[in-house]
Each structure stands twice: as structure tokens, then as C-alpha cells.
Design a protein around this nucleic acid. Structure first.
Lengths: 343, 343
DNA sequence: TCCTCTGTGCGAACCGGTTCGAAAGTAGCA
DNA sequence: TGCTACTTTCGAACCGGTTCGCACAGAGGA
């Protein structure tokens, strides 16, 4: 493999001159520059990433920590990963993907050994064990997901409170007065998925203000449990005319549940989910939803992270906590509640 | 950040002694060894990955090239990625995930710059543009997917021919005599997804031998097109009693299509897919299927790749082409064909 | 007593880049 | 002609590890 020494020799210059000719960090005569470039081409020279990292303390790699836990719904995660990966590449960075169960160990490994210039954390919990480590690391970090303590990192998340209010309001305005909210499974919430609470609490507050009855239930994150959960929910609340689904697995299972019960949306039941458009297309979900914008969040996180890495934002400058406003994508699954029959 | 020089100084030894104490590659007295270890602990020393890569020409990173093309069904890909990632970590390697559209450019970048010790290619086409580059690279490569020319790389794939035969035979034995096979969309096949042909050709040959009528059709890979495709297929072949689905998007869309037509499996139609069990659970698919074993394939590819990287398999030793035998997972969606009504 | 062998640690070179300071050459100007 | 200033290039040091060859000390044998 050709080194910069080989390039220099072929071009008849010193190594440093070759380096400067390539980086452009010092003036080099046109003659020498073209000779170096020719040598690069004829030798097929590519800089050795390890050597460059050693010399510059820059790896041009971003660490991406994604936890695929037992009770997490994996397909939704893929879109965050792609958003991060594609944006990173646009900005000249590669992605070191870490899916290790033990996130703290992984984070320590890649930051201490300087494999990465910065880190993006997905799936951030309210009290995330990885955060203290990330703050102590030399590399900057960006989160997708809102922890309780945002100090020392840049944070991006959907505005789940606004989402909760919007979901209730949307159905309220259509005339609904009794709703059910299906949330993430217990495990997720317990592990600190604060966004579940944020959406739920805001939804309840809004329901209270509107005089709407809102039942909160948890759904499993796996088949077939979540299907049974949904049946149980519908059995338990026969008066509910609207279903709010803040649980991707439940949303994916809902079509067959409705089918089994002979229900259609919005004729018998209005349904409003919270997932991405890509997700809806993949799973052929016919329900209107609050867009969770994973690609956009991933993109924002990487953009800000790279700004910090490249010093455009000083380490002293305050960290960002930015919420994406929820947008409702109408797929026609909500409408006026059915007329009361009997009573 | 502490370097090995700091460790050496604190322990009162030379850098080389510290290095040998840590690597164990030469005998070091017990006394010195513990002093070095204590210094490591008190300084929180971790070796710099770039420096080590430069010195040893080993990065302990594996490149993973996954193409997410417009017409590809993404969720199925995630399981390959996880299989590769988790296995790599078990063996001490990290994953550089590349999702760039231009696979050849990406491959050249990560191999020429020596960012990786080896490469796993997903989504390998029959005539894959990345293969010549991979053969020319210094690093070994492992593929998931069967190209026409397997030279110079280790190859792992499902035995799609056996799968095609098994699918036909399974329904033949239940008494079916007219079947429809739904394949991947045109685009995938044109780009060289040879496995589509392999399964299809083998299925046709088997059908011929059994005296079974087999109609082959292509389905789109996106909603809602694939749903319309499925309706059209069922309209066009009213006599078919069995549906073979070698198309994940079609499988995911099938439940609602059957619902819309008021059909149930296996009562009205026997359905047999080709996807992973994980996929079936995620999408709550109630159809029996040939297991595509993405985690297992990813695992096999990484295992073999690491063997090559670590020299357990010499570069001269013949490369492997290994097929995983398809296994049928029975979810109860196949049975005897319905009685002919009328005539 | 001398020689050899073994165990242990050190120094230096090397991996392949980047970057600083200085030297050489040339031009401009007094 | 002499001085300064600028342009262009080179040499050397450095990043932080690993590894080879050798030196030194103590043990054992002749």
C-alpha cells in the first residue's frame, strides 16, 4: 500500500511538501502540486485513517449507540439509524454502530479509546446510565430523547406534550367525549421512557380541560400479546369512540384486531397514532398519526454534533434542547363519533 | 488523556515494558506487572485505537455495507444488521455501518484508508459492482447473498432453490394443484436479486414434476401498490388455492387484503411465506413461512470473516459458499384446499 | 574463576500521517 | 551592492502505540 512517503518520492519532494500539497494548508507551487497529484493517482494513494487519526486527533467517525432491548419495537428504530447515518455521511463522517446491550461499557470503550469524534445516543431514558459517562468524555454528545438532566449534551426530541394535547384536541373537535390512550409497555416506561409520561400527562390535562373522559392503558410491545391487550381495552371501554395509540407495536397490530371485531375506522372508531409516515407505509397502516419524524431528529442531532466537533460551537457555549413540533398526517381514520345506538 | 508513556512513568518502567506487561507477549516479573496494572487503574488508561491500528495494522473494526434502496423493504434488513453487529462484538470487533447509496465508493473509502479489517456485504446482487473492488482489497470479505462469481470471498445465503421446492411440495402434499407465487418487485430482480429467480425457477421445476399449475407474479415493494397487486393477482387466478409469498412487503400487506376480500387462511386460501420468525412476530403475520434466518446468516458471515482476519484461515485456502437449509415454521395458514363449490 | 544460559528490562526504530521552524532562493527596493 | 521581504521547500519532531535486538544481572556448571 502506498504511503505519503511513496508519493513524495515519486513526485521528487519531501513528505511534508506532499502533505501540504494535498491538504492545501500552505502555499505550494503549481508545478509541485501537479506532480504530487500525479503521483497520488499513479500510486492509488489513500491516506491511512489510523495514522491520520493519531496525528490530528480526529477520526471522522461518529459513534451511534442504539439499544435493541427485548421489549423495544425494532423497526421504528431503523429510521433513526438511517437518519443519523445518512446525515453523517453528507458531512464527511462515518458511523460506528454499537448495538451492545451494555451501553455504558460500549460508550466507555469507544470514547476512551478515541475511536470516535462524537456520539449520538438513541433511546435516551429519563435517568440514562450512559449520560454521566458521556458528560465525562472528551467527545461531545447529542441525544435523541429527553432525559431529566440535559446538562452537557445537546438534546433533540419530539414535543410529546404538544403531541398529547394535539391528539386529544383533534378528536375533541370532531365531537368525541370518551377516548382511550394506548401507551408503551410497562417495561419501557419503567426503564425511563419519559416521553410516554410526557404525552400521557399532557393528554390527561388537556382532556380534563375539555371535559373529555380519557382512559390510559398500556400495551405489550410484542405479538401476540399486544393484540390481546387491544381486545381487552376495547372490551373494557365500550363507550369510547376514539383510540389514541402511542405504541408502534399496538398500531401495527390494530388492523387485524379491528378486523376480528368487525370494526372500521373511522366509521365505528376513530383512530389516531403516533409514528412516522415511513412506518405507516411499511406497515400499511391506514390510521392518521402524529408524525414522529425520526429522520429529522436524527439529522438535527448529527448536524449539531458535527458543529461541536468542528468547533463551530465552542464547548463553553450553552447546550441546546430542541423540540420538534408534532404534525398530524391525515389518513382519514378520524371522524365524527358514531351515533349512539340504543342507550 | 493518559498514554502508555504516563503509565510507564508512574510504574517506574520503560514504555516497552509497560506494553509487554499489558499484552503479555513477553515474560514480565510479577512485581513489575502489578505496578503497571496499578498505574493503569489509577490513571484510567485506555489504549488509543488509532495509534494501535497504526502500529499493528489491525483496527478491530468490521465494515458493514447495507444498501437501503428505494424499492427495498427496510425492516427485513435490520435483522441482518443486528446479527452481524452482535456477533462482531462477541468476537471483539466493532461495526462501521455504511448505508451510502454509492456502495462502490464507500467500499473503496473504508478499505483503502484501512478503517476496517474486513467487510460484510449485505444485499449482494448477481453481478454486484462492489465485488471486483472487494476482491482487489487487502481485507477479506464475506457476503450475505449469492453472486454469480463467488471467487475471492466467502458466501452465505439461504438455499433458495430448496426453499422453492419445499414451498411447492408442502402445498402439493396438502392437495393443492394450482398455486400463485408472488415474487419481489421488478426493480429488485433487475438489479440482480438472483435469489428471486433461484426460488422461482426451482419452484416451477418442482411444480412441473408434480403436475401442479404455478403462476408467477411480481409484487411492488411499497404500500399501497403491493396491496393493489395482490388484489389483482387474486382476481386473475380465481382457481388458485395456495399463495406462495417470496416478498416481505406483500406478506405484510396480505392480512388486510384477505380481510378486504373476506377470505381466511387456510379456510379459503393456503398461504406460505418466506421471511423470518422475527419478522412474522413484528408484523403479526399469521402465515406459515420458510424461515429466512437473517440472524444466522449474519452470524455465519462474521464468524468466517473473523477467521480470515485472524489468519486461522489462510488467504490461500479455498473460499466457502454455504447455504442454509430452509425450515418451515408452521403457523397454521396452510391446509387442504377448499372443496370446489359449483363447477 | 570463567563461561554460558536464562530471566528481565531498556532503548530505539517503526507504523504513516501532520505541522512547526527554518533554510534556500528569488524579487523588490533603496 | 546590500538589505529586506516573500515564496517555496525541507528537516525534524510529534501523535501513541508495538516490537526487535541487546544489555545486564544472577544462577548454574565445568
Amino acid at each position: 500500500m502506498a504511503t505519503i512517503g511513496d508519493v513524495a518520492r515519486v513526485a521528487g519532494v519531501s513528505r511534508s511538501t506532499a502533505s501540504y500539497a494535498l491538504s492545501g494548508k500552505r502555499a505550494i507551487s503549481e508545478d509541485v502540486r501537479t506532480r504530487v497529484m500525479d503521483a497520488v493517482r499513479s500510486l492509488g494513494y489513500t491516506p491511512n485513517a489510523g495514522a491520520r487519526a493519531l496525528a490530528t486527533s480526529q477520526t471522522m467517525v461518529i459513534g451511534l449507540l442504539a439499544q435493541f432491548l427485548e421489549d423495544e419495537f425494532a423497526p421504528a428504530m431503523l429510521q433513526y439509524i438511517l437518519g443519523v447515518s445518512n446525515t453523517a455521511r453528507e458531512l464527511g463522517y462515518d458511523i460506528l454502530l454499537v448495538t451492545e446491550d451494555d451501553g455504558t461499557r460500549a460508550l466507555r470503550r469507544i470514547t476512551d479509546s478515541r475511536m470516535v469524534d462524537g456520539v449520538v445516543l438513541l433511546n435516551v431514558a429519563e435517568h440514562d446510565e450512559r449520560l454521566p459517562l458521556l458528560r465525562a468524555a472528551r467527545q461531545p454528545g447529542a441525544l435523541v430523547g429527553l432525559p431529566e438532566d440535559c446538562s452537557g449534551v445537546d438534546v433533540f426530541d419530539l414535543d410529546f406534550e404538544e403531541a398529547g394535547r394535539a391528539m386529544v384536541d383533534h378528536l375533541y373537535k370532531l365531537g368525541h367525549r370518551e377516548l382511550v390512550l394506548v401507551s408503551q409497555p410497562d417495561h419501557v416506561v419503567e426503564r425511563g421512557g419519559a416521553y410516554v409520561w410526557r404525552l400521557q400527562n399532557a393528554a390527561h390535562e388537556q382532556a380534563r380541560q375539555r371535559g373529555v373522559t380519557l382512559h390510559s392503558v398500556f400495551g405489550a410491545s410484542h405479538q401476540p400479546e399486544v393484540g390481546r391487550d387491544l381486545h381487552a381495552v376495547l372490551d373494557a371501554h365500550p363507550g369510547a369512540t376514539g383510540l389514541l395509540v402511542n405504541n408502534e407495536a399496538a398500531a401495527a397490530a390494530l388492523p387485524s384486531v379491528l378486523h376480528e371485531r368487525g370494526l372500521t375506522a373511522p366509521g365505528d372508531l376513530s383512530v389516531l397514532g403516533r409514528y412516522s409516515d415511513e412506518f405507516a407505509r411499511t406497515f400499511s397502516l391506514p390510521f392518521s398519526s402524529i408524525e414522529s419524524a425520526p429522520d429529522r431528529l436524527g439529522r438535527m442531532a448529527v448536524r449539531q454534533l458535527v458543529r461541536r466537533i468542528e468547533g463551530e460551537v465552542g464547548p463553553g457555549e450553552p447546550h441546546v434542547v430542541r423540540f420538534v413540533s408534532p404534525e398530524l398526517v391525515d389518513r382519514g381514520s378520524t371522524g365524527a363519533p358514531p351515533r349512539r345506538t340504543g342507550g
